[in-house]
Design a protein around this nucleic acid. Structure first.
Length: 271
DNA sequence: AAATCTCCCTGTAGGC
DNA sequence: TGCCTACAGGGAGATT
């Protein structure tokens, strides 16, 4: 399921062939994504040139001559290059065809994903305007996390999964980062020490960077912009390992639901 | 303001 | 084999 590393992997896969290309045609087979796709702006895409592609949190932004596409992969989405005229399969909802005869295809079985168009600066869009810092940027630090945690009584796992605090940390990497930092997921955010937040910020950066390096985590059906799966699953320490021994101390990994999400931790390594 | 809850959706796994 | 149910989860929006 796409978290920040999977979105970054997608971006890196699609970006090289996007730049300076002109949209020739957009085929929408199903408008029913997170928000319905509006046929009015779909038509306005024709003839627009791609100025660049970026990422903000888990949102992909494709800057065009007169606006920008904002895309989200949701739970099960992927965006990848396929050979022109590849027959559309079930859940292949949108095709972008460029004048160089390349085909960018958006697939999303669960349809939690989104494709939006904005004529103002994408970063000012309501969905993006209030997002927290990028975890891999220099202004995301342990000091910042500790400051934001003052007065926060929620579980630290939910705290770091809040996009207003920091973007891109989803359920898998939150569990992994808390394991690597030795912090129990259920610990109240305002009870975590400043020293532990320094650790936490550092491991969030490394776990995300390593996952990007591995091409993301493919649990079931994720593929990057080049259509290939990611290999970070092999490096997961606790996620999905309930009942199995901790890789560090052999204590049995436990699962616990926090904020309607399953969380995994080692009772011995994480306090 | 902060925290929690509900909902959107389909594929898969497990029980019978 | 098929039917049924539970579960997975990003995150916006509503509610507490």
């Amino acid at each position: 399921m796409p978290e920040l590393p999977e979105v970054e992997t997608t971006l890196r896969g699609i970006a090289p062939h996007l730049r300076q290309q002109t949209i020739e045609q957009v085929i929408v087979r199903d408008t029913r994504l997170r928000w319905p796709i509006d046929p009015a702006w779909v038509e306005s895409l024709r003839g627009q040139k791609v100025l660049g592609a970026t990422r903000r949190g888990k949102y992909l932004i494709v800057e065009l001559t007169r606006g920008a596409l904002i895309m989200h992969l949701g739970m099960s989405g992927n965006l990848r290059w396929v050979p022109l005229a590849t027959p559309a399969q079930k859940h292949d909802h949108v095709d972008f065809i460029f004048t160089n005869q390349r085909l960018l295809r958006f697939t999303d079985p669960r349809r939690f994903g989104a494709i939006l168009y904005t004529e103002v600066a994408a970063l000012l869009h309501p969905l993006l305007a209030d997002l927290g810092p990028e975890p891999l940027s220099a202004n995301f630090t342990g000091e910042y996390l500790w400051q934001r945690a003052r007065g926060r009584n929620q579980a630290v796992k939910n705290f770091i999964m809040d996009g207003k605090i920091v973007v891109g940390v989803g359920n898998i990497y939150a569990s992994e980062a808390l394991f690597l930092a030795g912090i129990r997921p259920s610990k109240r955010a305002n009870k975590v020490s400043a020293a532990h937040y320094l650790q936490l910020a550092a491991v969030i950066k490394t776990v995300l960077a390593n996952a990007i390096e591995a091409g993301g985590t493919t649990l079931r059906d994720f593929v990057g912009g080049d259509g290939k799966p990611g290999y970070f699953k092999q490096q997961l320490h606790v996620y999905g390992r309930e009942g199995e021994p901790c890789l560090r101390c052999a204590t049995i990994i436990k699962a616990q639901r926090l904020g309607q999400r399953s969380s995994f931790y080692c009772p011995h390594c994480q306090r």
